[in-house]
Design a protein around this nucleic acid. Structure first.
Lengths: 354, 354
DNA sequence: TTGTACGCGTTATCAT
DNA sequence: ATGATAACGCGTACAA
């Protein structure tokens, strides 16, 4: 049952009639490798079916060329896209990626990171529940493991992060609703405890309302696996006067909310306008197309890797990268009924004045 | 700039005043480790901040406790879910997971797998474009690397795979439409070249139509990143008589199709019924809820890992695991207009007969 | 029960 | 330009 264990650099050396040092030089494209040596080694590599063993190489060189990545969940397309970005940028630079997910449970984060560190990853790209109070980040700092946050937007500017400006982006979403004439705007937010983004987006929401002199509407805070929003929405819309628009802290929540709204007899956008946050691909192909503040998830992953690699190369890249968000107009936001009437009236009066 | 390199087992031994063998035994829970030795070592581990280096251990023991995974794309929730399943099952068994994605490009598969093999992964869980003619799988077999396919359903029964019965599942979807009274059923299929699943599902589609004595409708084959189906659908529905139902080989395609249909003035389900394949989470919360043949993606990932680990443990597990699919009734399939009339008529007659 | 010493596959230093 | 050899961190056979 013993495997004919894989050929090593030693086997190649024997087959080529050279020393292992020569083989190593050829494999690593050392300038010292001469043409004929290269030819002989290449032939021997092909003959033996040799594959360089990165484990051996890592042990020696203490640089693992592996990047660890931790996200709350792969089931959210935002994170799946970001991981995709991380993976392809890493791959392009000769790095492999080890993934793990915390399942939105802050207390799992430490264990995940521990596992990654056991593999001596060169660095980490991660999204934590709360960058402000994360034992995990402190561990990484204490042990001087380079890391770059994604989506998190830590208050401490020394913590490397690639994000969008969550407060500004959320405020922009709300202002978009206000510009359409909405005055009673409610928010559905993902768990504040499990997501500092959710808190920041709420701050943007509240700020935009205050700035417009509007009364703050109640915020419905829900869990991330919560898909049954019917109860929450029923309560929300039982109030008089009912909200005319809904800002959701993620697209996933927005899509779920739209489904529940339809089922309780509120049409989107005719009765209620909805705007999401993330700009995931699916929200662009559904009908009506979801209006959303899009963040460039895939690029954020790629950019996080670039920052990490620059840091690993001993450079001093900016510790923070705020990527631009963009308001992606869809079809789920229109003017509320009353405003429509106002607009019409105004238009008629103007017409008459001519 | 030199890092104060991390403590090794040797530092721990020195701190505890024991030998490295003792430390190793304690860390690996060897029965030879005595209580007091364990106490001293544990204290020293804490004092030094030691973290076992898996790289060293892997090199020695030649078993990497890493699983490689390759999927066509993380942006498809089906694969993201499967990776999630792989990740958590692997984690539960002390394995780490290295991911890579082929971006639906068959010619990239070999390079991805090569990279994974360089890390001496213990085995692979993967989805290839076409399990029937995959140089990658042949490579793995030649080099005796254990692997388990996911989603692929290879003709050769020796190839380990965890899948659903794609032909039967697709046929069931089509029979569902037929049972509702649909007679003109078209199909939108993902690229046949990039997905053997797509081909099998088409076979199930054609089989179910033939079995019911229905004429085969044209199949629209589209790329996986193709989101603009308006043209295709316009052509499809310009035919006379137009199809009354649509079977899509993935939920992503179904969602895109529904969006495009609405935009060309066909309502779903009133004018056209739509059924998907995959049962991704989002399709359950949108409105109308997508009717779909669901496959247990997350469990498929987990099951693939279980199979792989059993094989690694030297067992001879069944090489193929066909997991049950389930028809998840949503709101996108109703009876076509004419059938509705027929049904009503029948019901009226029955009522009169009473 | 505990410790010594070797080897896993690689890179890199130092002779030649 | 090429080769011999010493690490890297760990597990374990073997000796004590």
């Amino acid at each position: 049952m013993k495997q004919p264990s894989k050929p090593t650099i030693r086997d190649v050396a024997a087959a080529a009639g050279v020393s292992i040092a020569t083989v190593s030089r050829v494999l690593n494209r050392s300038p010292l490798a001469t043409r004929d040596m290269k030819a002989r080694v290449d032939a021997a590599v092909a003959a033996t079916g040799f594959r360089p063993n990165r484990i051996g190489s890592q042990l020696k060189s203490a640089s693992s060329r592996m990047i660890g990545i931790m996200v709350p969940a792969l089931s959210n397309p935002v994170f799946a896209d970001a991981v995709h970005g991380v993976e392809s940028e890493a791959e392009a630079n000769g790095y492999a990626v080890i993934v793990s997910s915390s399942d939105y449970r802050p207390q799992r984060e430490a264990a995940c990171v521990d596992a990654l560190l056991a593999y001596r990853v060169a660095g980490l790209v991660l999204t934590v529940a709360d960058a402000g109070r994360s034992p995990t980040l402190r561990t990484l700092e204490r042990e001087k493991i380079p890391y770059v946050l994604m989506f998190n937007q830590p208050a401490r500017p020394t913590r490397a992060a690639v994000t969008v400006d969550n407060v500004a982006a959320a405020a922009e979403a709300v202002r978009h609703l206000i510009a359409f004439g909405h005055r009673r705007i409610a928010m559905i937010a993902g768990s504040f405890e499990a997501s500092d983004r959710s808190r920041l987006r709420h701050r943007g929401f509240a700020g935009a309302l205050a700035e417009a002199g509007l009364a703050p509407e109640p915020v419905v805070e829900v869990g991330f696996d919560e898909v049954e929003l019917t109860g929450h929405l029923t309560n929300l819309f039982a109030r008089q006067p009912a909200p005319t628009a809904l800002f959701c802290s993620t697209d996933l929540l927005a899509i779920a909310a739209i489904g529940c709204l339809k089922r309780i007899g509120r049409r989107v956008p005719e009765d209620v306008s909805v705007i999401g946050f993330d700009g995931i691909a699916i929200s662009e192909v559904m009908a009506p197309r979801l209006t959303s503040v899009a963040q460039p998830s895939r690029q954020m992953g790629a950019e996080a890797v670039r920052l990490l690699l620059a840091r690993l190369a001993g450079q001093r890249p900016p510790s923070r990268r705020i990527l631009p968000h963009s308001l992606r107009a869809g079809e789920t936001v229109i003017a509320p009924r009353q405003a429509e009437i106002t607009v019409l009236t105004t238009a008629l009066q103007k017409g008459r004045n001519r």
